[in-house]
Amino acid sequence: MNIKYAYKEDQNSPCQACRPAEWSPWSDWSGCTVSCLEGVQKRQRVCIGIGDCEGKKVEVQSCSLKSCCPQAGGWSDWTPWSECSVTCSVGQRQRTRQCNNPPPSCNGECEGDSIETIPCDTLQICPTHGSWGNWGAWDQCSFSCTREGSGVFPVQSRFRECNNPPPSTSPLGRDCDGSRQDTRECRDVPFCEVDGQWGPWQDASECSVTCGVGRIRQTRQCDSPAPRHKGKDCVGPSQRQTICNTKKPCPIDGQWTEWGAWSKCTRLQGDPIRCRQRVGNQYRHRKCEGQNYEGKWCEGKPRDSRACYDMDNCPLDGSWTEWSEWGQCSSPCGQSEKTRYRECLPTYPPYPDVVEGATKVVEVFFSGVPKPKCSPIDGESLKVEETTDCKNLPKCP
């Protein structure tokens, strides 16, 4: 059974994972219950899976956003009145005070305003500021149809100029405030074509199996939405075969892992056998994994052994292999190269490849990595490579 699936005890039960019970990650801590001094905050987690989880579902801890609560301060004396804010017509003068007599504590504030203003007249003529002229004609709509039910319509624009009057130059007047462009929706365009879209798949048969995951036939309707306003029909099949989960585990037979590496070739007596015609033994292991729900245990043995000669790091005469086949080109286009090689392989001594065991004749294998010795080729004694260009490749884009 796939543990990534879940199941329900009945239709109204919550969804449960098909694995042993375990806690979900903790939620983030909630906000502190007070804004100053000491309060509390909590976090929680959910038990997911089959069975009960050990430990707490909810944790609560103390919290403090501020070590003190705000205290109001007192105002200083007002400053002298400022100069008039404008150089023509009527402006304002102002004075200020500071909240520092005493200063507030813990982010407190003073009650009242920190600024007072009074009018002032400069007795000077002000410049003429610009004013907008009439709007021009409406442009064409931005597109020719609107999507039914979207509430989004095409728009059209019109423009105006700052010339009624234009701003003065001496004294310098301000340009017009606002935008020279106005837009509105085009609500009299027709609805756009609506292509059909498939609705959700619905089961049309029972699951093909009584345990684990099987297949089920499903159908769907072209109604989400149905084609309207000369739109296209739905594309694709209206029926399909898909997987279904019976929420009942099927027996799972065990499977052997790959064999592990062979152990070092040795004798139980500890006799020296490396680089000698003395038979030792080596072993490898594997595991039976995945057996569950009364499935079968793996057939065969978890341990394998064989007779061996220990040739690890043994100096041996070697011989060069013939040239290998040419390798693949280094690039699919432009300039590219390919390589072939020869290797110096060891010539093993003529030890018997079978020996008489206690109860049977057994095969003997050479174990370990020897050190072969070949006559050097181009200064190389173990591997020599040859490289050539790949011809007639296409140009790279």
Rank of each mutant, 00 (worst) to 15 (best):
M1H: 14
A6V: 00
S27F: 00
V34Q: 12
L37G: 12
C53T: 03
V58T: 13
V58Q: 12
C63M: 07
C69K: 08
W75C: 09
T79K: 10
P80I: 05
W81V: 11
S82Y: 03
C88H: 09
G91H: 01
R93C: 09
N100Y: 03
P104M: 04
S105M: 07
D113F: 02
D113A: 14
L123F: 08
W135Q: 07
F153I: 05
R158Q: 09
R158P: 02
N164V: 01
P167N: 12
S168I: 00
G173H: 04
R174V: 00
Q181D: 06
D182P: 02
E185S: 14
V189M: 07
E193N: 15
W201C: 12
S208Q: 05
S208Y: 01
D223Y: 01
P225L: 04
G231H: 06
G231C: 03
N245M: 03
P249E: 12
E258Q: 12
C288V: 04
D304W: 00
N313M: 07
P315G: 11
W320E: 12
S324P: 02
Q335L: 10
K338F: 01
E343F: 00
C344F: 02
P346M: 08
V354Q: 15
V361E: 10
G368R: 06
G368I: 01
K371Q: 14
C396S: 11
